[in-house]
Nucleic acid binder design. Structure first.
Length: 581
DNA sequence: GCCGTTTTCGGCCCGACTGTTTTCAGTCG
């Protein structure tokens, strides 16, 4: 029997486990890091690892060399990895969960295991409560308390936080910090500033001469559950909602290097440091240092990059995905900006499950600065949420026309639908109904868990239908909640490139679908993108910042995003698609 | 284990913070 097909995540998880166990075992750290790097690479691949494997291109993936590619080969062809089974015999696999406890690293875990026979979380908690760890070297009452608090916070933790939840919290903290006397600059850093779809901790950076007042303001916020650490430069807190935040305070004249450093990503910084070393310089969060020890201070980030002969680059690009080379060659992309969006092509009204009438939505769109809005209510198979039958589509036409007449040229309102790609692959309206509409989005909502072949074929039916203009939230994933449908994305992208259909970047922070990696691939293949809110009420109109951030992380320029075009050009694009019918 | 416009061997970021230490080890980012 063939082994069950493994997803990128499952393969990545295997190598994380290998890294964890090797680290506890005491393997040299660089070998451990190599497995972690390979794991991250697989997760960030943007392609199905099985396809890359079949093509024999595994070693083209950064961080995957001979040894790991052979292990992937074994894993994908047999579903097992003898190397892992062998380590499991030496190191209890349940120690990996102990490693998850904050402030416990491989050394401590190994110590507890070898000296106190602890092999899992339950054992750790029991031994800690019984005071059995106190006698071990390096252990004391505070460490005990930390372990118990760590186990508790682990049980509360839900993994990474969606960007859209963390951002407003961080924004509020910045407002508070900027208000402290002596603060010259305060910015977000880390994955938050790079606008990753999920973030670990909230990282903040302040430029001020005196750190004490800033630190006090930070740890003294009303929503702080506990202070995890407090020093002159760094302090960190856990909030009552479980989020963690950390703050760096540096003299304003060193703010640039510190912000660059704290923004990361780690891989981007490693790359930049390599560049520095080649020029006989070393780069730290404090300064650029010459070989003779003299420091060059940078108050701004631009000065840091300029010193190495690079243009400043937007934080969304800093993932070591070729941005430093692009900066060296002077061909960094000119990224799309939120203010350039002129249309919203995916919105709902009271004709399906929206909360606003067509007129309310149109007025809100106008207020948000848009020149065009497509009302794209659901089709009828989505019965539970009041999708429109064919009769309703035609009735709604008259209302849209009436609102258009009333509002005149101030905003263009398109007749649209979000037609369901049904479980059998058929679209929810006959072609002649779809042909009557200005714009058609096709989306998957049901039966997302169908086998790859079936769900991919459904998507192809939609992409190849000449009436379909945009594929809505293509993979169906929900950030940190639901895995994407098991689509063969190579096939989907190829078909989209062929048909000229646009792929959506759904801007809802719970979707961000396409994600950044897929967006970049779409651009490389010449597939147009569309950043839409999927607004179900007037408040959601204009809330595109996370969608734009995702596009920027995918290196999108204005040209690539159809709803940043002037309405005239967009309408012409839609008409040309009509000519294909 | 990976990688290569100083390379196929020898690097791979390093500094802050904490708790236990009496000068340092472990963790984290």
């Amino acid at each position: 029997m063939l082994p069950k097909k493994m997803s990128n995540r499952e393969v990545a998880d295997v190598f994380q486990l290998v890294a964890d166990l090797l680290q506890i075992k005491g393997e040299i750290i660089y070998k451990v890091l190599a497995y972690r790097k390979a794991s991250d690479s697989i997760l960030d691949l943007g392609r199905d690892i099985n396809v890359v494997w079949r093509e024999g291109k595994l070693t083209d993936v950064p961080g995957i060399g001979k040894a790991i590619s052979e292990k992937i080969d074994e894993l994908l062809s047999t579903g097992e990895l003898q190397f892992l089974e062998k380590i499991k015999k030496e190191v209890p696999v349940s120690l990996a969960e102990v490693l998850e406890v904050p402030d416990l690293g491989p050394k401590k875990v190994a110590l507890f295991w070898k000296e106190a026979g602890i092999s899992d979380l339950a054992g750790l908690e029991a031994a800690t409560r019984a005071g059995e760890l106190r006698s071990l070297s390096g252990m004391g009452p505070k460490s005990e308390a930390k372990i118990l608090a760590g186990i508790e916070s682990l049980s509360r933790r839900t993994g990474r936080t969606p960007l859209g939840l963390a951002w407003p919290v961080a924004q509020e903290m910045l407002v508070l910090l900027r208000d402290v006397k002596g603060v010259k600059a305060a910015e977000m850093a880390g994955s938050l500033r790079r606008m990753r779809e999920t973030i670990g901790d909230i990282d903040l950076l302040v430029g001020a001469k005196d750190s004490a007042a800033v630190t006090e303001a930070f740890v003294g916020q009303p929503n702080v559950a506990r202070v995890l650490g407090k020093g002159d430069i760094k302090s960190s807190i856990e909030l009552t909602n479980g989020y963690r935040a950390q703050l760096w305070v540096l003299p304003p004249e060193r703010f640039g290097t510190a912000l660059q450093y704290a923004t990361g990503s780690k891989d981007h910084n490693v790359r930049l440091r390599e560049l520095a070393l080649k020029q006989g310089l070393s780069l730290s969060d404090q300064a650029i240092t010459r070989e003779d020890g003299t420091e060059i201070l940078c108050a701004t980030e631009a000065e840091v990059y300029e010193y190495f002969g690079l243009a400043w680059m937007p934080s969304e690009l800093r993932e070591d995905r070729g941005e430093i080379q692009a900066a060296q060659n002077g061909d960094l992309p000119v990224l799309i900006e939120q203010g350039q969006l002129r249309s919203d092509l995916h919105t709902h009204s009271t004709w399906s499950d929206g909360k606003g009438t067509i007129e309310e939505m149109a007025r809100a769109a106008k207020k948000a600065g848009l020149k065009l809005i497509a009302i794209t209510d659901h089709s009828h198979s989505i019965g539970v949420i009041g999708g429109m039958d064919v009769k309703a589509v035609r009735k709604r036409r008259k209302e849209i026309e009436a609102v258009q007449e009333k509002m005149g040229k101030s905003i263009r309102i398109l007749q649209g639908v979000e037609v369901e790609i049904k479980a059998d692959g058929q679209l929810d309206y006959p072609d002649e109904v779809l042909a009557e509409l200005d714009i058609v989005i096709a989306s998957l909502h049901v039966s997302l868990r169908q086998p790859r072949k079936k769900v991919t074929q459904r998507m192809l039916n939609a992409i190849q239908n000449p009436n379909v203009d945009i594929i809505g939230h293509p993979t169906g994933r929900l950030v940190a909640e639901r895995e994407p449908a098991d689509l063969d994305m190579d096939v989907v992208f190829a078909a989209a490139a062929e048909s000229g259909v646009a792929l959506e970047i759904n801007a809802n922070f719970k979707r961000l679908d396409l994600n950044d990696v897929y967006s970049r691939r779409a651009i490389d293949l010449g597939i147009p993108l569309s950043i839409n809110t999927d607004a179900h009420n007037t408040d959601m109109l204009g809330k595109t910042e996370y969608g734009v951030a995702t596009a920027r992380r995918g290196w999108a320029e204005q040209e690539h995003v159809i709803n940043s075009w002037q309405p005239r050009r967009l309408l012409s694009w839609l008409r040309k698609r009509d000519d294909r019918k």
